[in-house]
Each structure stands twice: as structure tokens, then as C-alpha cells.
């Protein structure tokens, strides 16, 4: 019997998801033994035509990391969808949009202006900007067009499973691969991680009373978290209540609060809104003024509550009338 075929592909990715695969260390050799890798752009030279030549469904599983933000990405992931039985969105970027998805609070124009014109070190008197087509003498050079909006994978193709995390921890990668190889899979659409919230497995949960209140949030800039207390009780934003467990509470063990890379808890539509909801009982005040000052202590709610999930959130991006016209 021939080995199952597996493909890896990356869209707008930082490479950390690939590193996570390398961190499987010896375990990776087992994976190699069990599957035939038919696409891995960082490591192997397979051509577009090679993938096109596959029959629909001939690839058992494609792992795709990075967020989707150009027509080139779109073309590739649609092709892989057609040729694969299973698509796994690998890592926070593919799952939720990830940190690059924060670009949805700005626009391509602003990004270009800041990078190529207003930058503190750029010298660009003619306001040159990257172009999708450039003629240098008689030679034509092309660049892919960047989308204004960063997408997560399931906004572009149908996704079977999600492997959360930025980056996913090696043990959860190994588990997922095992599950796929053995066919022992949960229902389609599942996130391959815990069904609990991070708080439920957090070692600091014991220090978190049933009800507690705080006056205002503290900033990591000027305060150091207590090494044992629940961050929220201690006054720091910790996304634990709205975040799916399964990461091994990595940040918490580093004495830093969770920023939510595992995405929303099960059955949660919107990670940011869910966290916001939990804040109602956390702040103390009974007056409008107190509520206002509590809100003021949380700088940048959008970037904090949707650190990893802006593209997959209900509103998906910033938009205002001004920008449309």
C-alpha cells in the first residue's frame, strides 16, 4: 500500500510554524516514515504543475499555515483544497488570522505610506512605492498584489481541522498527526486542542476566587505580575477566560498573561466580545464615572482583545465611512 500523501504550504507566515515542526526533533522522523510529503516549499521543490497533476482527493492531508492576503495565496490554497481529503489550518494565522491580521485595523495605503514614504530612515524624494508591475528598461518585473484585508484560511476555503497556537506546541502537532494517520478524528470543523478554557487548566486558577473585582487594569510596562497570583485578580489583562486551553499554559509559566493565541473557547463566536463580557463582573464600580475610568485603564481594546483573532472576528476589520469614499 502506498503511503498517505501530505502537503505543507505557507501563506503569509513568519516561519515560526515551520520551526515548530523542526522542534518535533526526532519525532519528525516517524512522520517522514509514515507519510509521503508531496509539497513543502521551504524544503522541497515541487512545482505548481505537480500539484495540479494530482487527482482530486489524492493528497490525504494538507497543513496550511499563515494568513491569506494575496491572490497567489488564494490560488494555492484553492488548489490544495481540491486535491486534498483534509485541510488543516495550522497555527493561529491560518486558524484566526493571527498577529499579521492586526493589519486589518489599518489599510494597505497606510502601510505603504508609513513604510516607504514617512519612515524615519527612508530617503524617497520621488515617493516611489512598490508596484505590481514595474518596467526597468525593457524588463518587466512583477510583484503580487497585497490585499487590504487579511483573511484566515476558512474565509477562503473549507477547512476540516484547526491546529491552534502561535506557534502550535510540538506535542499537539504530534498528536494531530497521529490522529490523522490513525483516522481517529473528531467531527469535521473541530479545533484540535482542549475543550476547556485556559483558566480551567491554569495553575493559577486556585488563586482566582469565584468572584473578585478590580478597580482598573495595570500595565506590564510599569508593574510586574505576582509570580503566583491569577493575572486577572492581580489586575493584568489575561485572555484566559476567553481562550481555549491546551497550550500547556506556556505564557503563564513564563509569568506573563495569556494573549489568546489558542483562539476562542468552544462555542464562542467572538473571542474579544467574550472577554469583554467577562469584564462586567470584574470591575468594581457602580457609577458611570467608575465605569469610564475602568475602560480608560484598558489601552487599545481592539489590539488586546483580538490580538490573534481580528480577521476571524465578527467585525473582521476596521472600516469607517471616510475610508470607503
Amino acid at each position: 500500500m502506498s503511503k498517505p500523501k501530505a502537503a505543507f504550504y505557507w501563506c503569509a507566515s513568519c516561519g515560526g510554524c515551520e520551526e515548530a515542526v523542526v522542534d518535533l526533533a526526532e519525532a519528525i522522523l516517524d512522520v517522514v516514515q509514515a507519510v509521503e510529503i508531496v509539497l513543502w516549499p521551504v524544503a522541497l521543490d515541487f512545482k505548481l504543475e505537480d500539484v495540479q497533476a494530482f487527482r482530486p482527493g489524492e493528497i490525504t492531508v494538507s497543513f496550511i499555515n499563515g494568513s491569506v492576503r494575496s491572490s497567489e495565496h488564494e490560488m494555492w490554497v484553492k488548489l490544495l483544497r481540491e486535491k486534498s481529503q483534509l485541510i488543516v489550518a495550522f497555527g493561529a494565522c491560518a486558524h484566526l488570522g493571527g498577529i499579521p491580521g492586526l493589519a486589518n485595523c489599518t489599510s494597505r495605503d497606510q502601510i505603504f505610506q508609513n513604510k516607504y514614504v514617512r519612515s524615519a530612515t527612508v530617503v524617497n524624494p520621488k515617493n516611489v512605492l512598490p508596484q505590481t508591475q514595474t518596467w526597468v528598461d525593457q524588463y518587466n518585473l512583477e510583484l503580487p498584489e497585497m490585499w487590504n484585508t487579511v483573511c484566515c484560511l476558512d474565509q477562503v476555503i473549507d477547512v476540516d481541522y484547526y491546529l491552534p497556537g502561535c506557534a502550535p506546541p510540538p506535542d499537539s502537532i504530534a498528536k494531530a498527526v497521529q490522529a490523522i494517520l490513525s483516522g481517529n478524528l473528531p467531527p469535521k470543523g473541530s479545533v484540535l486542542a482542549s475543550e476547556k478554557s485556559l483558566c480551567e487548566t491554569c495553575p493559577r486558577n486556585e488563586t482566582k476566587p469565584e468572584t473578585f473585582t478590580i478597580d482598573s487594569f495595570r500595565r506590564l510596562a510599569t508593574d510586574t505580575p505576582d509570580p503566583e497570583k491569577c493575572f486577572l485578580v492581580d489586575g493584568f489583562v489575561c485572555m484566559g477566560p476567553a481562550t481555549r486551553g491546551g497550550c500547556g499554559e506556556r505564557c503563564i509559566r513564563g509569568n506573563m498573561p495569556c494573549r489568546g493565541c489558542f483562539g476562542p473557547t468552544p462555542d464562542t463566536l467572538d473571542q474579544g466580545a467574550k472577554f469583554l463580557s467577562s469584564l462586567g463582573s470584574v470591575s468594581r464600580g457602580k457609577t458611570v464615572e467608575e465605569a469610564r475610568s475602568f475602560a480608560d485603564s484598558l489601552a487599545d481594546p481592539l489590539g488586546t482583545l483580538y490580538r490573534f483573532s481580528l480577521p476571524s472576528s465578527l467585525l473582521q476589520r476596521r472600516s469607517c465611512n471616510k475610508e470607503v469614499s
Binding site: P100, Q110, K115, C166, L220
Partner: peptide
């Protein structure tokens, strides 16, 4: 990817955990 732009308005201390995503290597 535009980190210089989409980080604007954020508390600066968060940059230490945001900017590593420029390169996971």
C-alpha cells in the same frame, strides 16, 4: 506585513511579544 503601521496606538510594552511574529525563525 506592515508591523510599523498596525502596531500604532498599542501599548509599547506589547511590542516585545508582538514583533517576534515578524520572524518565527
Amino acid at each position: 506585513r506592515g508591523f510599523e503601521t498596525f502596531c500604532l496606538g498599542k501599548p509599547a510594552e506589547e511590542m516585545a511579544t508582538i514583533t517576534p511574529r515578524i520572524c518565527g525563525v
